[in-house]
Computed example of a mutant assay.
Amino acid sequence: MSSLRHSPEEAPRADPREDAYLDAARACILDVGWRRTTLTEIARRAGVSRMTIYRAWSDMSQLLGDLMTREWAGVVAASHGGTLMETVLATVRALRENELFVRIVELDPELLLPYLLNRRGRSQEAVIALMEQAIVDGQQAGTIRRCNPQVIARALLLAAHGFVLSAHTMVDDDVTEADLEAELRTLVERALAP
């Protein structure tokens, strides 16, 4: 199902101080989790009035959407480079190790469910757009198979979801995280091979 609420490109913030407010929200979530974080506590940590925070976000859900978009977009941007396969592997690894992502998965995993079961979010749209462009470029260079770039990008994102969220459930004495990463490499290589 396509998201009608979010565009793949993030609009510039009306107030450049909002990054400081998001930093305060991130710190709160890392300390006490999402359920115990309030706009009032975020305002206190940011050193501003509660109304200042309410002017930027009317509720915690809106703030969380902006925080997750900023965080995940930063992870993808930091992982981007080299081949598409290298970028996918680096992004999966970086998300699994991301402090905020790990904290949300540990304490409040239900926050991720809408983006896994009901709709794509801004971060997912941005990742798909980046992958689509890399796929088009690879197709033009003859290094990626001819197929609808949107389909390939979305399929890669779906596969990556499992490796980000569930890889730890597949690790035991017989299969290591490195084994799974090697298999992800094979999956991506074969999915893209011309």
Rank of each mutant, 00 (worst) to 15 (best):
R70N: 11
A46V: 06
T38N: 03
I42H: 06
I29M: 02
A24C: 11
V92W: 07
E71L: 08
R26Y: 05
H80A: 14
D23C: 11
F101D: 03
W72Q: 03
D31F: 09
E41F: 10
T69Y: 07
L30S: 06
L89V: 06
E41T: 13
V76M: 01
R35W: 01
Q62F: 14
T83S: 05
S49T: 14
A25D: 00
F101M: 13
T37M: 05
A20Q: 08
T87G: 09
D59G: 09
T83G: 11
V75G: 07
D19R: 15
A20D: 13
W34Q: 09
M51W: 14
A27M: 09
M60D: 08
L100F: 12
V75N: 07
W57H: 12
L95N: 02
A25T: 06
T40H: 15
L22Y: 07
T83Q: 00
M51C: 15
G81S: 03
D59I: 12
C28R: 07
G74I: 11
V88F: 07
G81E: 04
F101L: 11
R93W: 09
E97N: 12
W57K: 11
L67W: 10
A20K: 13
G33F: 01
E97L: 13
T83D: 04
E41Q: 14
L63M: 15
V48P: 01
S58N: 14
G33R: 05
T37S: 01
T83N: 07
A94Q: 02
F101S: 04
T40R: 14
V75W: 06
M51R: 15
S61R: 10
A46H: 02
N98Q: 13
T40C: 14
R93M: 13
I29T: 03
Y21S: 10
G82P: 02
G47K: 07
S79K: 02
V92F: 01
V76F: 08
L64Y: 06
R55S: 13
R96P: 00
V76S: 02
A56E: 01
